[in-house]
């Protein structure tokens, strides 16, 4: 055993760095382990000490069933998904069109337009939320999924990412297609869009996560339970229910973080790329 470790770590210094890295990893995982282990406990004893970090028998998977029967979890889930998915699709389509105009159609003021779009990244949410709240109330969209979808169509990072990638495609593609009689829309849909698939994935995943995880806008725009998204719904219900149902709430918490966790597991490459690209803008 000792020989094995010696082989793997050439020096004691490397062993120490590895040990520290593992320790930090454990600290990252501990709260999540507690969350999961507690979500499988008898609800009345959710918080009884000693706490569990590793699920103890009997495993109460029924808590997960209760998430669907005693909480309107499914409704929250559908709302979250609808808002994030619809906002993402529309936003990606619009942003791709804008990026296309910015780098593949020569026109005066392109630089100015880009600056105006990117300036959106600097505006605190608090500045626009009050006017948006008033606007939504006045046009009757307050307390509906529209109030969440519409303002979320503004996502400057997507325009930035797509523009950057489209700029690397040689203009000769457009010219050749133009010679063959293709119009702007044909060039956009059949040549450029297929070539920027990976940037669309990066911008799409980043945006989906952002909207899925958003708590602030639903908090302001939604009051009826039937329109609540997952974060707001769980938060509100947690306030209503006593400590006697903590494990059911935690089961809901665990379920609610599965979609972003899955996106991360399978789209890690895109998320890292999106984060890194966000770094260039500075």
């Amino acid at each position: 055993m000792i020989i094995n470790i010696r082989n793997k770590f050439s020096s004691p210094k490397q062993l120490i760095t590895f040990a520290v890295a593992v320790l930090v990893g454990v600290l990252v995982l501990l709260p999540l382990m507690w969350m999961f282990a507690t979500s499988l406990r008898v609800p009345q004893e959710s918080l009884r000490l000693p706490p569990s970090l590793i699920p103890k028998l009997p495993l109460l998977w029924s808590n997960y069933g209760k998430v669907f029967t005693t909480l309107p979890f499914f409704k929250f889930f559908i709302n979250s998904f609808t808002v994030a998915f619809v906002a993402m699709c529309i936003q990606l389509f619009f942003s791709a069109m804008a990026a296309f105009a910015l780098v593949r159609i020569p026109f005066k003021g392109a630089q100015m337009v880009l600056l105006l779009i990117l300036a959106g990244m600097m505006v605190p949410a608090q500045v626009t939320i009050i006017p948006l709240f008033i606007m939504m109330s006045k046009i009757g969209l307050y307390d509906s999924l529209y109030a969440l979808i519409l303002p979320n169509m503004v996502f400057p990072l997507a325009v930035f990412l797509l523009r950057q990638f489209m700029a690397t495609i040689p203009l000769s593609y457009d010219e050749a297609a133009y010679m063959d009689g293709a119009g702007r829309f044909t060039i956009f849909f059949q040549i450029i869009l297929p070539m920027v698939r990976s940037s669309l994935a990066v911008a799409g995943i980043m945006h989906f996560l952002l909207v899925w995880n958003d708590f602030f806008r639903p908090l302001i725009f939604i009051t009826s339970q039937r329109y609540m998204t997952l974060p707001l719904g769980l938060y509100t219900l947690n306030g209503f229910m006593g400590n006697g149902s903590t494990s059911v709430i935690l089961a809901g918490v665990v379920l609610s973080i599965i979609p972003p966790a899955l996106l991360y597991a399978f789209g890690q490459k895109y998320i890292i790329e999106g984060t890194a690209a966000g770094g260039i803008k500075g």
Binding site: V28, P31, N238, I249
Partner: peptide, 19 residues
């Protein structure tokens, strides 16, 4: 592993952290 918490829903994990 280290980046993992960043992608999780703040509101959801905050409920657990309060406990």
């Amino acid at each position: 592993l280290y980046y993992f918490p960043c992608i999780l829903t703040t509101a959801s994990v905050a409920i657990a952290w309060r406990y």
